[in-house]
Write a protein that binds this DNA or RNA. Sequence first.
DNA 1: TTTTTATTGAAAAAAATTTCAATTTTTAAA
DNA 2: TTTAAAAATTGAAATTTTTTTCAATAAAAA
Lengths: 149, 149
Amino acid sequence: MNKRLFKIALKEKRLRLSYPRVLIYQELSQAKNLLSPQELYQSLIKKHRKIGLTSIYRVLELLESLGMAFKVTNGSSVKYRLCESKEHHHHILCKGCGNVVELNFCDISDWSKKVRDLTGYELTDHQFNFYGYCKACKPYRVQASTGNG
Amino acid sequence: MNKRLFKIALKEKRLRLSYPRVLIYQELSQAKNLLSPQELYQSLIKKHRKIGLTSIYRVLELLESLGMAFKVTNGSSVKYRLCESKEHHHHILCKGCGNVVELNFCDISDWSKKVRDLTGYELTDHQFNFYGYCKACKPYRVQASTGNG
DNA sequence: TTTTTATTGAAAAAAATTTCAATTTTTAAA
DNA sequence: TTTAAAAATTGAAATTTTTTTCAATAAAAA
């Protein structure tokens, strides 16, 4: 997702396009792999950019809340990547290599109705995550859980 | 979910039914509200139980990985509750009061096929979370996001 | 029992969050 | 424009939360 859209998203929420926000956004968008807050911080420091670790955490959280970044928690490791699509979507993660693929479809209508009827809740949003093995990892797969009822 | 099932689950995974595990399980099962690791720890210390904070974190993680507890992250607050059902299920959280309801259904067949066809991944498990407002909070609802595509 | 193996918890380390004064950005006024 | 005022944002330091390490202990198996 490109910088222009970030700018627009910020404007919409009356948030400011500050230097740290741009820095962090750019660094993420250039990254080949998922980045941890620490990696992101070190990477910027190495480039002699003025940035505080606090801002790293804050901006990553902001990007996630805007639906522009995806947070991958793997055990105790936390990493982020920018989303390719600006539309609402879900993700699937490979349990072997950690690769993430975006799923740009979302048929939630049946679910919504069922959930509403069953609980009386008014749905505002949702989050689906899928886990599995990608084509490359499948052959090496050991002891995969089934765990989906 | 009762203690017997915890015992069985541990045995299946060749894990031991240790005193800290039982303690924490019981404390959670008696809790009226969701509990943070710190709350759980303080609560046990007040009752003069011998327990380390490290174990709290470890056992909560264990329970979650067994599908017996649910971790609710709300901003920077982390809380846990025991699941009522031992079957695979999903959750819906109220954005107003934080209440959690279990959703004991899961029609994932369409999704599975779609995801497999689209990505080539072999699915092992998934996690759905829904957010919204419960009946009680609906009238007070302010500025709800739509965010579900 | 004895042996093997898993688990614990204190302490240390690391990660994440909060606080708050200084700074930056935006808006409003001249 | 330029300047002044208002509001949001920053980051260093302090704090809190979470994780790791590892020797001691407890549980299960032999």
